[in-house]
Write a protein that binds this DNA or RNA. Structure first.
Lengths: 148, 148
DNA sequence: TTGTTAATGAAAATGATTTTCATTTCCATT
DNA sequence: AATGGAAATGAAAATCATTTTCATTAACAA
């Protein structure tokens, strides 16, 4: 098996084996900038690896989410979509969803303001309500340029 | 048919008829503070109105969303949940989802800060990317008091 | 090299939602 | 108040995403 084995040791720590489907799926996700669905992953891999089943894609995605390597999101209807977690802070972005055509658009304005709000909210939720905040999601809905 | 007919005229404007299932479903939603699923609505209504089918519940919910009377949300997995849109600004709230037990908790801290961020973001999205923002969603994930 | 155990794939099961279609109900117009 | 036509409804079937089952295969520690 070729390709980057940089995640191999993290699988060990999770009592998980380093297998071809896992390497290939993780590699695809790390090279993909957009959110992709399980079926899209399955389709992308089919030509090169026809042996990899959709079930394994789902199971691997679930594992990667638990390992904290990828994010899972459900944008309204449709299938869940997965995105590689970038370590780079400046790649942080939000989503705008066109309610007409379903397009998902990333943008990264007001990240600082958002981080400020998130920080405050997390502190308050922790103190006042005793919640442990681990993640958050902010998204906007409306009409994209084409659909207005 | 008894009950408040205050929405009747809005149905006319939407080229929709004022029917028993629609009145009953809307009435239930307006009296319910929590997010409820289609099946929960169906079950609540079953004793009093056994004739109302689950299909009609789904269709009515879809109509009410299009009319702007209710909000539809998909909290991760599980069924979509619906919530009556309150006109009262002070009833605006956010959601905290416990990733362990699935509990959804409303809270309403930092509404002002959030509105500020939302306003700024909407303006920028409109100017810079030419999107028309109609709605937004902010939610936090983590562990609730019981699940830590 | 081998034994055990996790991982896999195919098929079936599940659960939410949508579609189909024959029947019923609403309601504008007699 | 009666009525005709379109919209709404309900039951069943279809669809779609995801999960479970189970027999087989592959990873990897010893």
């Amino acid at each position: 098996m070729h390709g980057p084995h940089k995640w191999r040791h993290r699988f060990r720590a999770h009592v998980s084996r380093w297998t071809v489907p896992r390497e290939v799926i993780l590699d695809l996700l790390s090279r993909t900038s957009k959110h992709i669905s399980a079926k899209e992953i399955y389709a992308s891999l089919y030509r090169m690896y026809p042996g990899i089943g959709l079930t394994t894609v789902y199971r691997t995605l679930d594992l990667l989410v638990r390992m904290g390597l990828i994010n899972k999101r459900t944008f309204g209807d449709g299938p869940s979509r997965y995105e590689f977690k970038s370590e780079k802070k400046n790649e942080h972005h939000h989503h705008f969803l066109c309610t007409k055509c379903g397009r998902i658009i990333d943008y990264s304005d007001f990240i600082d303001e958002e981080l400020e709000l998130v920080k405050k909210t997390e502190e308050t939720l922790a103190k006042k309500h005793n919640f442990k905040v681990l993640d958050h999601n902010i998204e906007f809905y409306g009409l994209c340029e084409k659909c207005q």
